[in-house]
Amino acid sequence: MSLHGAPTSAELIESVREWIERDVMSSTEGRLKFHSRVAINVLAMVERELAMGEQQEADHAARLELLGMSDDARFAQAIRHGDLDDRLDEVRAILRADVDAKLAVANPKYLDGPT
């Protein structure tokens, strides 16, 4: 149940992205076609963030909590001050998981590695 009902924000974004892909891209060229591709990529990123972002935020907070950190600022400060030097494997694992989460939204193809 949603206060705003259907279509949802995610559905609206998907519709605009699909319209650009189907109708705009096929009838444009040059600069406008390039900007259409950029718009498609941006909308796809927003779709993925809407779909995954809440869970990613919860997962990130849980990872920080494993190190006893309340937020990113405290985590960064602890790294800068060397407070976590004895836990570098854990720090690397958290940072890797965070980068993977960001890539899953920004461009999931980068998670596949070189082709």
Rank of each mutant, 00 (worst) to 15 (best):
V16T: 06
V16Y: 01
V16A: 04
V16G: 00
R17W: 01
E18S: 02
E18T: 08
W19I: 04
W19T: 10
W19K: 03
I20L: 03
I20M: 01
I20N: 01
E21Q: 11
R22I: 14
R22W: 08
R22T: 12
R22Q: 10
R22H: 05
D23F: 07
D23A: 03
D23M: 00
D23I: 03
D23L: 04
V24F: 03
V24L: 04
V24R: 02
V24C: 00
M25Y: 01
M25P: 00
M25E: 02
S26I: 10
S26R: 13
S26F: 06
S26D: 07
S27R: 11
S27M: 05
S27Y: 02
S27W: 05
S27L: 03
S27G: 07
T28V: 12
T28C: 02
T28M: 03
T28L: 01
E29R: 09
E29A: 03
E29M: 03
E29I: 08
E29L: 00
G30R: 07
G30W: 10
G30Q: 09
G30K: 04
G30H: 11
G30N: 13
G30F: 08
G30C: 02
R31V: 13
R31Y: 14
R31I: 14
R31A: 09
L32M: 06
L32R: 08
L32W: 08
L32I: 14
L32C: 05
L32Y: 09
L32A: 09
L32Q: 07
K33C: 00
K33E: 06
K33V: 01
K33A: 12
K33I: 04
K33F: 07
F34A: 11
F34Q: 15
F34T: 15
F34G: 01
H35Y: 14
H35L: 13
H35D: 14
H35W: 15
S36M: 05
S36L: 04
S36C: 12
R37M: 08
R37Q: 13
V38S: 12
V38M: 14
V38W: 11
V38K: 14
A39F: 04
A39Y: 07
A39D: 08
A39W: 06
A39G: 02
I40R: 04
N41H: 10
N41A: 10
N41P: 05
N41S: 13
N41T: 13
N41F: 09
V42M: 15
V42Q: 15
V42G: 09
V42C: 10
V42E: 14
L43T: 09
L43R: 07
L43H: 06
L43M: 11
A44P: 10
A44R: 13
A44C: 08
A44G: 12
A44S: 12
A44Q: 14
M45N: 10
M45G: 05
M45A: 14
M45R: 15
V46T: 15
V46Y: 10
V46G: 06
V46M: 11
V46S: 11
V46K: 10
V46H: 10
V46N: 09
E47D: 07
E47P: 03
E47V: 13
E47L: 07
E47H: 03
R48I: 12
R48M: 05
R48S: 11
R48V: 09
R48D: 05
